[in-house]
Design a protein around this nucleic acid. Structure first.
Length: 318
RNA sequence: GGACGGGUGGGUGAGUGGCUAAAACCAGCAGACUGUAAAUCUGCCGCUCCUUGCGGGCUACGUAGGUUCGAAUCCUACCCCGUCCA
């Protein structure tokens, strides 16, 4: 007779207003935000990652941001573990988890889970990289073909990261990746997930991306990058590969003119948004809203939908 | 006014007689993605027709003519752009 707690997940491309909608949902339904974003976990990288402001964090409690130093690595698997801890805490306190999802893989890792796969191993990767250097660029693909031809068919010969991961899994598990991954995924348990999606019209989204980039610059993004650089964080640190950070750093080193950099950032962001759309669109069980999350009418509807769903689920579950 | 260099598809830019609807890269569009995912990779990318084929037709390399079986590629004139000389 336990009422399974609800988990609300808001998906959508960057700049679609997930945070704004999440804030409202959390405020009105007694929730806290569980951020699902691979960039906001890094401390100090705030403006360019659209991290919730201090004011917002004061209004509604946020989780899973500012977890790491710039030189630390993070993975979908680690995200899953951390998120499960947070969810357990929220459940205990009777708070509604409101996930704002920018990183589709992380949400999948949490909700759908992975098959039981070996964790990333730097040793294996170092070895693979050495072999690749010795035997040529197509070494990994040839190797995977020997181990697991169906996986090799699925992954392109130039897709080094995925080839490496596939081989790594095969080696550590002692059986082909395909076999490893055909095992059941370890789904998130104990929550009823309600997914809502934001899908603004493409041109409107792109316009907003363009505007938001300018706003980020106005809010001192460049100064943020300068401060991070002056702290001695190397350009090779992972968060400097996030959209904008590397470009702005290069600009500070006198490499590119600012207007060109801003244009490049806008472009990269548009492309990123497109990839997010490609990822989220086929997602199952999503209630889609064709607009921005900060639109009053849209958030009214979304809220109405959510309240209905939550009530329904809780009644049917008890 | 004169001398050179150059004008190629949305952009950059290869291509000097047939293998060129035109390399490559970028942008754009679509897609894939089970552990670095704001990452990485794949396909398409002049228009059009169908019996969707390494298929047909049309248009295209500043403009207009010409040479040739055949021209983005050669010739002539003209128009632009850049550099230099007056």
């Amino acid at each position: 007779m336990t009422r399974a707690p609800v988990l609300v997940a808001i998906v959508g491309p960057t700049a679609s207003g997930k945070s704004a909608l999440g804030m409202r949902v959390a405020r009105e339904l007694g929730g806290e935000i569980v951020v699902c974003d691979s960039t906001q976990v890094y401390r100090g990288f705030d403006i360019g990652t659209s991290k919730p402001s201090a004011a917002e964090q004061k209004t509604v409690r946020h989780h899973l941001i500012d977890l790491l130093e710039p030189d630390e690595l993070f993975t979908a698997g680690v995200y899953r573990e951390r998120a499960i801890e947070v969810l357990a805490d929220l459940r205990e306190r009777g708070r509604l988890p409101v996930m704002t999802v920018g990183t589709g893989l992380y949400m999948r890792a949490l909700i759908d889970g992975f098959s039981e796969t070996p964790v990333r191993s730097e040793e294996v990767r170092t070895r693979l990289r050495t072999s690749m250097a010795r035997h040529g660029a197509d070494y990994l693909h040839r190797a995977l073909r020997r181990i697991d031809s169906s996986a090799a068919k699925r992954i392109g010969p130039r897709d080094t990261p995925k080839l490496m991961r596939a081989i790594e899994i095969s080696m550590l598990a002692g059986k082909p990746v395909s076999e490893v991954q055909s095992a059941r995924r370890q789904k998130l348990e104990g929550f009823r997930v309600i997914k809502i999606g934001l899908m603004p019209p493409r041109t409107a989204l792109y316009e907003r991306i363009e505007r938001r980039t300018i706003e980020m610059m106005d809010r001192g993004w460049l100064a943020e990058v300068r401060a991070l650089t002056e702290k001695g964080i190397p350009a090779t640190a992972k968060p400097f590969s996030f959209i904008g950070y590397g470009d702005l750093r290069a600009h500070l080193e006198g490499k590119n003119k600012l207007p060109a950099v801003v244009a490049a950032i806008q472009q990269a962001t548009r492309r990123y948004a497109k990839r997010q759309v490609t990822w989220f669109r086929p997602e199952k069980d999503v209630k889609w809203f064709e607009g921005f999350g900060d639109d009053a009418k849209l958030s009214d509807e979304a809220l109405k939908y959510l309240s209905g769903e939550i009530e329904h689920k809780e009644i049917s579950a008890s």
